[in-house]
Design a protein around this nucleic acid. Sequence first.
DNA 1: TGTCCACGTCT
DNA 2: AAGACGTGGAC
Length: 310
Amino acid sequence: MPEPTPLSSAASPSASSTEFSPSAFSTAVVSWFAVAARDLPWRRPGFTAWGTLVSEFMLQQTPVVRVVPRLAEWLARWPTPASLAASPAGDAVRAWQSLGYPRRALNLHACAVAITSRFGGEVPRDVPSLLSLPGVGDYTARAVAVFAYGDRHPVVDTNIRRVIARAVDGAPDAAAPNARRDLPAMAALLPPSDADAARFNAGMMELGALVCTARAPRCSSCPVADLCAWRAAAYPSAPVARRPVQKKYEGSDRQARGIVLGVLRASDDPVPHTALAEALPDPARLGRALAGLLADGLLVTPAADLYALP
DNA sequence: TGTCCACGTCT
DNA sequence: AAGACGTGGAC
């Protein structure tokens, strides 16, 4: 729930009569971002488009603090798409370590292959080409175009959807994701210049991650508190629309996949079925995990009774 | 101690 | 289009 609400300033005469101003809003976010931004390596000058693609891939499902060390190792080893394309996909899965969702490692390797074969080794710059890469969706494609190439596009992640829902729409939380609505909503807020648009995209993500958080927004530290429609409306509360709870991980097939992959990652050589059965004694669960990983391309069987990373 | 939660893409 | 997909930190 929001902090105790000093509504005195929001209750000023202008608050309800003034229309929402995108330029005032974006200016406040960009100014705040210049001061409050975290030191994220892929936003430092000199970062390559490949580095941005790798970082955004890792960030698809994983918090910044866990990504940073993996990213440095990854780029030291594979500084270009061609270098990764020349390695086996299994090496990418190993280097992914415990970032989670290992199919992202496989997709990133497939991106390296596609970039090398279809784009002359250069990460493409236009959004449709980026979207054609495996594992690259609306978010990653535009994040690369904006942060690596400096072009002007709306980037929409879950944090930005929440900030817009609150500050612009006066709602407690974002509705279900919908690109046909979310992308234009963000586009309508973008400042005119490419450089400011990039800062605004990054600033909105940081604002949602650090200040306008899902459960305990820090409104007293918010650079747009005075412009926020949700705050002006005295924080109407949500009719608690809880999303369906995630299934229990313990004992799940999901966990089983992780266990199998952990064994394979730890071994330089293909492992026999008995080694997997030792780590995962439930034969039915092991069978489902192996079938799933095989279907996803995260597992190969180089010989009868042997299992390995691709 | 555990249960809940976040995260983007694909199908 | 609802659900699968992994992990580690918050509560």
